[in-house]
Every structure is written in structure tokens, then in C-alpha cells.
């Protein structure tokens, strides 16, 4: 039986009076590539933030590695790549190497291990040429590679991603999805929100479609089934083209 990493039970969430999520339950297991699709305002990012413990809900429960997300001591086993334009401070005066090294130190690794792990992550992503450059001086694609290196440097068991390819070119986007696919094949669980429906349906083994009062998980990659769900949540017929 697969190891359960994330367990969401009867989760509901409201912003002030408006119900955003209603009685959602699902699990994510070791090795899952869990894609989340849905139109703007459907609650995708809210769901991800709840799963990460960035916000909390009074209704329902979320456990990660068997512990409540708000008090979990195992959060250093996860990584998060958010929508960079919303979260990252790109004028930050730090080099890529410094950023990765310091992030590792911040979650408890000692200096020697952090240097080695940062260097390994930089080699894995192939960004040795930009490791000593300031993050703000890099192109969007290079920054995204740096964030992948940061995310994998701590050897996480699960990575959460919120529309990670927004604002990067087609080539960098392809690199990104390939990198996540390889990571997933090595056993890392992925939970990704994306507007790129074809990428999600190509790589994810489980796809959640979220819409107004709708939450449906497709446990296999049956294109017809997913197209039916997408029609329901987007309100128009969609034809999927896989990568």
C-alpha cells in the first residue's frame, strides 16, 4: 500500500461570507503527480495555501506526513514554488548560490551539508553558469531554474507548485515540466496548479478539476472523462492535446 503524504478531510473555507471551498476530501500518496485545474477564482490557490498551512480553516482537517499541517514538525520535507510575481522579491540582493544555501540553513542544515546540497541542486538543474549571479539580474527562465534548484535542494518528499510557468518562454516551460516529471519518477510527490491543461493531463497521474461547487478527482488519465469535467467547470467544450 502506498504511503499517504497529504490527507484532506471535509475541508471547507470561506472568505468573509463567500464560500470558496465546500467539503473537499482527498489524499495524495508517495509518488503521485497531482494536478489541479480550474478557472480563475475557483479556489485552487486557496486550496494549495490551506494544504501548506499558509492559511487555516475551522472546518475540516489537513494532515501532512500524519501530522496536523498547522503544528507539523515535518514541514522541512516539503518545498513550495509559488507564482513568482506574487511572492518572490526579485530585487533581492542575493546570488543564486547564496539563496539556495541560506534557505537550507534556515531549515536546520549545517554549513557543510548546505554547501554540498546547494552545489548538488545547482548541478542537477545545470545552472552552474549563473550560480554566482544576482537573482534579479537573470531572465525569467533562468530565475525559474534557480527556483527549481532551491526547491529540490532540501531533497523534499513533496513539492507544491502554484502556476509555476507563468511569464516564462515556451522553451523554459518545457524544461520545467520535464524537470518536474523526472523528479516525480525519482519518487517525489508533486502537487501542481496550472492553467496549462495539456501539460497537467500529460504528466499528472491524478487530476483534480475544481469549479464552483465542484471538486472531482480523475484517478486515471482518461481524456474523455477529464474533458467532461473541464466542460463542467469552464462552461465550454475543450479538446485535450497531450504533450
Amino acid at each position: 500500500m502506498k504511503e499517504k503524504i497529504l490527507e484532506v478531510k471535509n475541508l471547507s473555507f470561506s472568505y468573509k461570507e463567500q464560500k470558496v471551498l465546500s467539503n473537499i476530501s482527498f489524499d495524495i500518496y508517495k509518488g503521485d503527480y497531482f494536478g489541479i485545474l480550474g478557472p480563475n477564482g475557483s479556489g485552487k490557490t486557496t486550496l494549495l495555501k490551506l494544504c501548506l498551512g499558509l492559511i487555516s480553516s475551522k472546518e475540516g482537517s489537513i494532515n501532512i506526513f500524519g501530522q496536523d499541517i498547522q503544528s507539523s514538525t515535518k514541514k522541512n520535507k516539503i518545498s513550495y514554488i509559488s507564482q513568482k510575481s506574487n511572492s518572490f522579491n526579485l530585487s533581492f540582493p542575493a546570488t543564486v548560490n547564496e539563496l539556495i544555501y541560506s534557505s537550507l540553513r534556515s531549515i536546520g542544515y549545517d554549513s557543510k551539508s548546505s554547501k554540498k546540497m546547494a552545489s548538488d541542486a545547482i548541478d542537477t538543474v545545470g545552472i552552474g553558469n549563473i550560480a554566482n549571479k544576482r537573482i534579479g539580474n537573470l531572465s525569467g527562465g533562468q530565475q525559474q531554474k534557480a527556483f527549481i534548484a532551491k526547491a529540490i535542494s532540501s531533497k523534499p518528499e513533496m513539492i507544491f507548485l502554484d502556476e509555476p510557468t507563468v511569464g516564462i518562454d515556451y522553451g523554459s516551460e518545457g524544461f520545467f515540466y520535464e524537470a518536474m516529471h523526472k523528479l516525480n519518477l525519482s519518487g517525489v510527490s508533486i502537487c501542481m496548479i496550472s492553467h496549462d491543461i495539456s501539460a497537467i493531463t500529460s504528466y499528472a497521474n491524478r487530476v483534480a478539476c475544481i469549479g464552483e461547487n465542484t471538486f472531482h478527482i480523475h484517478e486515471n488519465q482518461d481524456i474523455m472523462d477529464i474533458e467532461t469535467s473541464l466542460k463542467k467547470i469552464y462552461g465550454k467544450k475543450m479538446r485535450l492535446v497531450t504533450h
Partner: peptide
């Protein structure tokens, strides 16, 4: 120092990772 560094760069990621 390193926790504040991580927070200053990306507060959400720092919080998600347990800081």
C-alpha cells in the same frame, strides 16, 4: 539570520517549510 533571510526573500515559502 538564515530564517530571516529566507523570510525576506519569500515569506510564503519560508512559512510552508516550517519557519
Amino acid at each position: 539570520y538564515y530564517k530571516l533571510f529566507h523570510m525576506a526573500f519569500d515569506e510564503e515559502s519560508a512559512k510552508a517549510m516550517g519557519i
